[in-house]
């Protein structure tokens, strides 16, 4: 009976209870955490490393190079596992961005396989023109006249060329920029001739011969 009142016994009993409680609350416990999971490098990994190398160097790696690749790969694996265990990937901007990028690729791939229905596309076209609009493009040929010699020659040519059968050959002065422009948008024309000329050309109705507005390139002297 005196034994049951021994403080040492109580101490041992309480200790035992603590350990039991810990074991119950932590399944797996210390035993399981003591042996870290093994890292397996398989033939498939080696093959992948060889291919990555060959893509860059246009030849397979030598034995020494392959040993180096495997060693590097293993080192990387160990470090990244430890890093993850320490939660170094949490809050890292670069990791976040890369994961978001991978997710975007995944979404793009899945979206590409699904063709939206015609009605839905049409609805989008009607309601969101800002998403589908591209700059207007124009094709034209021009007959260029230097202004120093007056506008009469230009007027004569315009009259002559309004006849659909007429050919622009023999009309106009030298222009090193050429006389025919295909599929140019306003910015491209502004780069060659200046903004006001580009604007004027874009505003012309299609398919008609026109007396052109003054070219900014000419007046820029």
């Amino acid at each position: 009976m005196r034994l049951l009142k021994e403080p040492l016994l109580h101490f041992i009993a309480l200790g035992g209870l603590l350990f039991a409680a810990h074991a119950a609350l932590n399944p797996g416990g210390v035993r399981a955490g003591a042996t870290p999971p093994a890292i397996h490098l398989t033939a498939a990994d080696a093959e992948w490393l060889k291919q990555m190398w060959a893509r860059q160097w246009r030849r397979p790696p030598t034995d020494e190079e392959l040993r180096g690749l495997v060693a590097d790969h293993l080192k990387e694996e160990v470090l990244s596992r430890e890093a993850r265990a320490l939660e170094l990937d949490v809050g890292d901007t670069v990791v976040r961005r890369r994961l978001a990028q991978k997710m975007t690729f995944l979404l793009d791939d899945t979206i590409r396989t699904a063709e939206p229905p015609e009605a839905e596309l049409r609805a989008l076209y009607e309601t969101r023109p800002d998403l589908v609009r591209t700059p207007a493009r124009v094709s034209f040929s021009q007959v260029f006249f230097r202004r120093e010699q007056g506008d009469d020659r230009a007027r004569t040519s315009l009259a002559a060329l309004s006849n659909a059968a007429a050919h622009p050959e023999g009309h106009g002065d030298r222009l090193l920029l050429g006389d025919t422009f295909a599929d140019q948008d306003e910015q491209a024309l502004a780069n060659l001739f200046g903004a006001s000329f580009a604007q004027a050309v874009m505003a012309l109705p299609a398919d008609e011969g026109h007396g052109g507005g003054p070219s900014a390139a000419v007046t820029h002297r």
Binding site: V143, F144, E169, G170, H171, G172, D173, R174, L175, L176, L177, G178, D179
Partner: peptide, 22 residues
């Protein structure tokens, strides 16, 4: 700059004044 340079045996002075020298 826009630069053109052509060589041949038969160029004449008038060629430089044509609408499209190129």
């Amino acid at each position: 700059m826009l630069v053109r340079f052509f060589g041949g045996w038969d160029f004449v002075a008038q060629d430089a004044n044509s609408r499209l020298p190129a």
